[in-house]
Amino acid sequence: MSKNRTHVIGKSGWRRTLGAAVVSAIYFFPVYYILMTAFKTRPDALAMPIKFLFTPTMDNFYSVFVRADIQGGGGTDSGFSHYFFNSLFIGGTSVTLALIMGTAAAYGFSRFPLRGNDTYLFIILTTRMLPPIIAIIPIFVLFRVFGLSGSYTGIIALYTAFNLPFSIWMAKSFFDDLDRDIEDAARMDGSSEWRVFRKICLPQVYGGLAATFVFAVILTWNEFLFALMLTGTETRTVPVAIARTIGGQVGVDWGLMSAIETLFIIPVVLVTFVLQNQLLRGVTFGTIRK
């Protein structure tokens, strides 16, 4: 297992490595462009051809959080620190909830199948087949009726429901792949059903769950439509706030936009980085002899 891994990652020839580097560079370029623009002054950002050499400035990052007063003087809080908090709090909570519920449900579907198990699973998936633009109408009405519009509860509940089918399907596939003899061995070793789940099955799928967590975080983090319709000033998330920034009085401030986006990318990068070992395990899932 570990032998294979070092081989796959470390020992390819120079030509392949170079090829991969070129492809990655192409993929990475938009991100790099944003990073660069975030540190440019306004004239530099607008300069054509693209300026690759320039004197970096932190001004854009400053203005993300503080809106300059036209009259001069101090400036007011742009509210972005609050929006970042919202995105983190809403995204983190809903994905975690979805993953916990999804894992439990998936274990049930996998180990204690119901009559018509597959039908249930299919129905669960159908909730994700509607384009959000259509689903939004009844949901909007529902939120109005129950007074959930603009509340944390509402948007967290929605995102949890939104991530649940994906979590269930992913987690179920991980549980299905496990070797049942291992669980039987644990039963013989004296484990209760709960401990079989907690001590034997769950740890084996951590990698897969971590991968699922990252995907769900990215989806939720970037979600725009529901957030636009269902959050208020208090619960506004970053994507919505970005959209509102675009419509400024003085045209699009590319530097500012890029600074926001740079900050916006950081949490996703961090999560992926922290979980990268787990992710690798998730991808190379099921390497133990069956």
Partner: peptide, 18 residues
């Protein structure tokens, strides 16, 4: 199960991989 005093070596070993 606890009181059975029975142990088994599985054909597939069934070791706990984690």
């Amino acid at each position: 199960v606890r009181a059975r005093d029975t142990a088994m070596v599985f054909q597939t070993f069934a070791l706990y991989p984690h």
